[in-house]
């Protein structure tokens, strides 16, 4: 049995994907990494809002004409709309329209319609796998797609005694780290990318941090970030960074994103209802976390020698 810790890294979807393997050979690690890279690329090719050749771009430029889509696209957009309904439209994949109008991603030179179409105008045809968008509607399901790709890669790693996938800060761990120990994962300081603010010990868990400090800029004098509450078209305030731990990275990422979008009150309510361990940094710097998170927490000073 191999006991080495093996690291592999590749780049996809504009993010770095770092894989750590325990209990397999170098050659196996190469093979598994190549498989994972293929999985990520296929999601990127299909769902990128930054690629003119993607299926998503075809859908986003369909201008009200029904589009036959792949089963993968159909499922992802359906899931997005389900989350939109659950959050009364705070989460809405139609956010792509606003981001595109800021010049962030495609379609290029996009001008926002006076009335921004919402998730409610997306029409699904279950029989023919067709999606019809409203004219000028641009979808951005990226937050969901990344974690779905991580889950798919995780399934491809099935059978490996221990592994961790870290895709741009979204983490999936399975099995254990060396010597049967759990994985120690730190949470980045939203104000300083080189600093951390907390750490947890997890095994067989997904962990995701969503923050308003990642993609952001300014539009007509108003600061924006990529997480926009579509109920009012404004960027959400209240939570700077939300970390959620769940069995899958998909759940963790979805809940972290929703927490930011819903804001401190509704966000915390939703997390409490679902019982996921969470760690939030509010805009004023205060921390909100639950007992489930504290149970996994390890003091940073015990991890730094």
């Amino acid at each position: 049995m191999e006991n080495k810790i093996l690291h592999r890294l590749f780049h996809t979807m504009g993010i770095a994907v770092h894989c750590t393997f325990i209990g397999i050979s170098d050659k196996d690690a190469d093979i598994r990494t190549a498989e994972a890279e293929k999985i990520f690329s296929s999601y990127d090719e299909r769902f990128s809002r930054f690629k003119e050749t993607s299926e998503l771009h075809r859908l986003n430029t369909s201008n009200g004409i029904p589009q036959k889509v792949s089963i993968e696209m159909f499922q992802v957009i359906k899931e997005c709309v389900m989350l939109s309904k659950e959050t009364s439209g705070a989460f809405d994949p139609s956010v792509g329209s606003i981001l595109a109008s800021y010049g962030y991603g495609l379609p290029a030179n996009f001008i926002l319609p006076d009335t921004i179409p919402t998730y409610e105008s997306i029409v699904f045809n279950n029989q023919d796998l067709e999606i019809t968008l409203a004219p000028g509607q641009v979808l951005e399901p990226a937050s969901l797609v990344k974690s779905i790709a991580i889950s798919a890669a995780g399934q491809a790693f099935d059978g490996i005694p221990g592994f961790m996938i870290n895709a741009g800060g979204d983490i999936l761990t399975r099995g254990t780290f060396e010597k049967g120990l759990p994985w120690n994962i730190a949470i980045q300081d939203p104000r300083n990318p080189r600093a951390i603010v907390a750490a947890v010990s997890i095994r067989n868990a997904g962990m995701a941090t969503s923050g308003v400090y990642q993609a952001h800029g300014e539009h007509q004098g108003k600061p924006w970030h990529h997480l926009i509450n579509m109920q009012n078209g404004n960027t959400t305030r209240g939570i700077t960074s939300a970390t959620v731990i769940a069995h899958t990275c998909e759940e963790a990422d979805t809940e972290a994103t929703l927490a930011i979008l819903l804001g401190p009150t509704l966000g915390v309510m939703r997390l409490e209802q679902r019982g996921f361990p969470y760690f939030l940094i509010l805009d004023d710097g205060t921390i909100r976390k639950n007992a489930a998170f504290t149970a996994l927490e390890v003091p940073i000073d015990t991890l730094i020698s």
């Binding site: 504009g14 993010i15 770095a16 770092h18 750590t20 961790m164 870290n166 741009g168 800060g169 979204d170 983490i171 780290f177 994985w183 120690n184 994962i185 730190a186 949470i187 980045q188 300081d189 939203p190 990318p193 951390i196 750490a199 962990m207 995701a208 941090t209 923050g211 400090y213 990642q214 993609a215 952001h216 960074s241 970390t243 991890l303 730094i304 020698s305």
Partner: peptide, 19 residues
Amino acid sequence: GGANIQGVSGATYTSLAFK
């Protein structure tokens, strides 16, 4: 720094350079 940390959950390099 001798830290026993296997990963960090948070932002990415691309966005840092973008900023």
